[in-house]
Design a protein around this nucleic acid. Structure first.
Lengths: 127, 127
DNA sequence: CAAACTGTACTAGTCGTATAATACAGTCAA
DNA sequence: TTGACTGTATTATACGACTAGTACAGTTTG
């Protein structure tokens, strides 16, 4: 059962997108595996203090990407493969790197300084 | 005069916030300096193809942070100081690093691998 | 079987972002 | 001084994210 214990929604980005990212990153990290059982829409929404429809939207999008399977009346499960995880990892990392590199470049920061900044502030930015 | 030539709005985040970031990052980079003249609300909105009210919202927030001064009837100008720029630089970088570090950590990526990924993909992620 | 769960669907409302149109007051230069 | 520009303010509309409540069909378990 996927727990969502470490899920802390942030304001500023849609919650359903944050749920999507939480699942995808968990899959890449290996903490979420193929066949894992997902909490029901109602249970998860109560746990997170959000609306069931918001959870449903996130789960529907996950199903659109074939990362979970849902069936009326039954529980939902992760459907992962090595190929899917590899794609996820590549996509997520590329997007994250593109984002930070663009931001730092706009501030006139070059590659060497970016590496130094990331190295110096890595531990400091614990969640 | 600040040009906004390299400003490309992205969908997914509010445009007024992107304008804020564009100005702040330019100030940190040194391409935007104290006393620089800002385009008028009407001119900039026409240039970017967005609504004047959206530009006004961004400029109002900049004035709330005392980064620009506005006066009815007259043009608006940047009001920067070394101290302000230093604060901006620290805040923006810290937030960016926190964001990428959190994302990569959620994917089970440690500091060494993060540095390697950033180094390998820095050039590739040109805007 | 029956109760308690599951996923799914729908309507209605709030809130923030963004647009559209207009108005008014102050500055600046021809 | 006059006209063209500035900043500022107002009202109305549209849309997506999110909430709230309800309903129905299918599965699972006692």
């Amino acid at each position: 059962m996927i727990t969502f214990e470490t899920f802390k929604p942030v304001e500023g980005t849609p919650i359903y997108q944050q749920i999507l990212l939480y699942i995808k990153r968990g899959a890449v990290a290996g903490t979420i595996r193929d066949g894992d059982e997902l909490p029901s829409r109602r249970v998860l929404s109560a746990l997170l203090g959000i609306n069931p429809n918001t959870v449903q939207k996130a789960f529907r999008l996950l199903e659109d990407e074939s990362l979970i399977t849902s069936q009326t009346g039954a529980k939902s499960y992760m459907t992962l493969s090595g190929e899917k995880i590899g794609k996820l990892r590549e996509d997520l990392i590329r997007e994250d790197i593109r984002s930070i590199a663009g931001a730092l470049r706009q501030m006139g920061i070059d590659k060497e300084e970016a590496l130094r900044l990331l190295s110096e502030n890595w531990e400091e930015s614990e969640s």
